[in-house]
Design a protein around this nucleic acid. Structure first.
Lengths: 317, 317
DNA sequence: TTCAAGACTGCAAACAGTTGCACTAAACCT
DNA sequence: AGGTTTAGTGCAACTGTTTGCAGTCTTGAA
């Protein structure tokens, strides 16, 4: 049924090992035989079986990518870039979704372990111990989480948050709210410590909140009650939900309160008002993560973020 | 290094075949030995090697999913649902992105073929012939494309388009534009033929257009020039771009012109005005596609769509 | 008591490749 | 001419698991 290396060997009058080598070590075989084997292989429609190859070499040429929620608009650009980078080096990409369930991370890594050469873990929520245990099973790189000993790619959201709050300060705001993210999120912690350090700004922290539009919507009451003129939201979805919630309460953005988001998802660009936000280099992170994985270098890199000023911020009344 | 079935066999004093059976055919092994093997396996941290298993059984327990553009907001919910369905049956999912390049479809399927038990192809653009050729290599199901002989899941966008145009008619519109999608798209053709059949409506077709916000933006001039009061756009991104383009030209939605999109992506819900749109059951399609694949049934199913009326449509001036 | 049936388990041959080693023949060097 | 290197190829063992077949040991029935 399926054509194997032996069929090609027979049809081209050489031993299987020669066929094997024309594919995995072409320089070791005579040019003439090589082309003969290749044409025969082409005719027969032979493709090396990667699973079988993996068995002896131990390398699968597959990578795993684990995110909390594929449908969260933050991730697709990252996934896309990771896929492109993998493809470029002839790797295939498993994609998995933990559904925001930390336990699923561990299980997925385990399940992947024999089938991939490495996995990239985005914003993992598992404990350090659990991650270290996993590191013994399969190489991985973590994105947006600090982890000793593992390859890491960080997006410098702290810097972005500082820029955002400074932007608000520059517009004349003095009292701003931080509508924070879920408890235990590295990103959320980074944002907070950075925001707190901006001089001349009185920061009130509201949270933790779900990292969703709904979470932002639900925080609207508390934002209104704490008498701020500016808000930094955990991410764009939260910002959009918050803007909607504020509108329901008669407050308009940016006239009554300025809101800045984080991530720069497309919905933010399409939203009215267009969101001022901290652009996260998600594509670069995805690409870099798989490159690190493939090259087996364990470095920790921090990617630049930048502030994109659009229409949701203005001087206070 | 890595613990194999032999290690478990040795440690629990049975033959490897018994260990194998405790995992793949538990009912064939004595309860006592089974538990012994399982505890030993647990202690040693043994996980069956799927690649090796695939070699003898021919089943990899992997599936492939190919879409045109992972970052297109239409797809992530589909991918997520497909992943969940796969996971539920202990399958892993390769995800790939053709970058809107039809040639990539064929190449990706080829590359996947030995490594998956089947692939789901979303809105493929390859020729029928090419697809039939691929069908010989690996089972697949196509989404949003009609293909004889292959398992198919369709979203009944024609019906949705008809509802949309009827909705406009009901509001009193008489002349509406169809801002169509890319040439050769099955979906676009479906929309068109359905929209043309609504009585009492004079339809002017504008296109083909890129299926993006930019495409919609670029169509704004032609929409203005053709003196319509209502528009059906190929998808929500086009609709949003169009609304923006119209605003630039001093036309507001829905006061001056009503716009209805298709897909019901989140950006449409978050957009101002909130988009009236045809909701596509993407999650259901993803789930169904992998179920069909796993169960190896080749049926063709058509999923219901429905009209969601929000704020971008109103009676004409 | 004897025999057949059934429940477990072991044996060994696959599955589709890779790779260290051995071998041959040609090319190169004095 | 003789020896040494080198290029190319074949041989066979190995990767981790499954599975048809055969063997052993119980168990139940006649």
């Amino acid at each position: 049924m399926t054509v194997t290396i032996r069929d090609v060997a027979r049809a081209s009058g050489v031993h299987v090992s020669t066929v094997s080598r024309t594919f995995s070590a072409p320089h070791m075989v005579n040019a003439a035989t090589r082309t003969r084997v290749l044409t025969v292989a082409e005719e027969l429609g032979y493709r090396p079986n990667r699973a079988a190859r993996a068995l002896t070499t131990g390398r699968t040429h597959n990578l795993g990518l684990i995110v909390a929620d594929i449908a969260n608009p933050f991730f697709p650009p990252l996934i896309k870039a990771a896929h492109a980078a993998a493809r470029q080096r002839d790797y295939h990409l498993f994609v998995a979704d933990t559904d925001e369930e930390p336990a699923a991370e561990e299980e997925l890594v385990q399940a992947f372990s024999k089938q991939v050469d490495g996995v990239v873990l985005c914003s993992p929520r598992s404990s350090n111990k659990a991650l270290e245990r996993l590191a013994e099973r399969v190489p991985f790189v973590v994105v947006n989480r600090r982890l000793r000993g593992a390859a890491t790619v960080l997006m410098d959201v702290g810097h972005g948050a500082r820029l955002a709050v400074e932007h608000l300060a520059g517009l004349g705001h003095r009292r701003v709210a931080l509508v924070s993210g879920p408890a235990g999120s590295w990103t959320s912690a980074e944002i907070r410590t950075a925001a707190e350090q901006v001089p001349g700004i009185e920061l009130v922290v509201i949270g933790p909140n779900a990292p969703t539009e709904r979470g932002g919507f639900a925080a609207a009451d508390r934002v209104r009650d704490c008498a701020v003129t500016g808000v930094l939201a955990y991410n764009d979805l939260v910002a959009i939900g918050l803007i909607e919630g504020l509108a329901d309460r008669g407050l308009s953005v940016p006239e009554d309160v300025s809101v800045v988001g984080i991530d720069d998802i497309v919905s933010g660009r399409l939203n009215r008002p267009k969101l001022t936000t901290v652009a996260m280099p998600t594509a670069a992170a995805g690409r870099l993560a798989v490159d690190l994985l493939i090259q087996e270098v364990t470095a920790t890199t921090s990617l630049e973020t930048r502030l994109v000023i659009r229409d949701s911020t203005a001087p206070p009344r």
